[in-house]
């Protein structure tokens, strides 16, 4: 081997830098990464599909199947752990009858356990449909979920629009 054989990687490098932002964009739009989307991205960036898939599966953020209507992210940071976040997770497991993939039996909820969200001072924390809730207990969690259930039964066509806290605070 007389010289570095990696020359062919050079021209592709600039566009390759866009891969992760593009995957994030696709997921933001579609909710997950479909094989079609990844294949198309691979073509656009002139990168092997295996590599695109390799990158996508490396990062926690990317999902390969759609999520339920409501997404509950349970923080698995240290402070939350010390303050019994596992109890919250187990409670969700029971109440929502979670399947191994983290989706509830009725498919309405997806429960994810996520890396520290950086709100340790008010642990334990969950993120429900994009909004943080701190100092949680099983009772407070139940109140939140009851609020969602009530809301969804009353206006089943428009789930996820209004924040459920109003219900829990009233």
């Amino acid at each position: 081997m007389s010289s570095a054989p990696a020359t062919l990687a050079q021209p592709a490098e600039l566009s390759r830098e866009q891969l992760i932002p593009l995957l994030q964009e696709v997921q933001a739009k579609d909710g997950y990464l479909s094989q079609t989307a990844m294949t198309e991205l691979a073509q656009a960036l002139d990168t092997p599909v295996a590599s695109v898939y390799g990158v996508a599966t490396f990062y926690n953020q990317f999902r390969f199947a759609p999520l339920g209507e409501h997404v509950i992210e349970v923080c698995r940071g240290t402070a939350c752990h010390v303050k019994q976040s596992l109890t919250l997770y187990q409670h969700l497991e029971r109440r929502l009858k979670l399947r191994p993939d983290g989706n509830s039996a009725d498919g309405r909820f997806s429960v994810l356990s996520v890396a520290c969200v950086g709100a340790c001072s008010i642990a334990p924390v969950i993120k429900l449909d994009g909004e943080f809730y701190g100092h949680l207990t099983v009772e407070k969690l139940d109140a939140l979920l009851d609020g969602i259930d009530k809301h969804d039964t009353e206006s089943p066509t428009e789930p996820n629009q209004e924040q459920p806290t109003e219900a829990s605070h009233s």
């Binding site: 062919l8 990844m38 092997p48 599909v49 295996a50 898939y53 390799g54 990062y59």
Partner: peptide
């Protein structure tokens, strides 16, 4: 060396494997 890229690392950590996409 071959510039084909049919296989690559997939997944992460203990679950890592080498194989084709998807």
């Amino acid at each position: 060396i071959q510039g084909v890229g049919a296989i690559d690392y997939i997944d992460r950590g203990f679950r890592t494997q080498v194989g084709p996409g998807f």
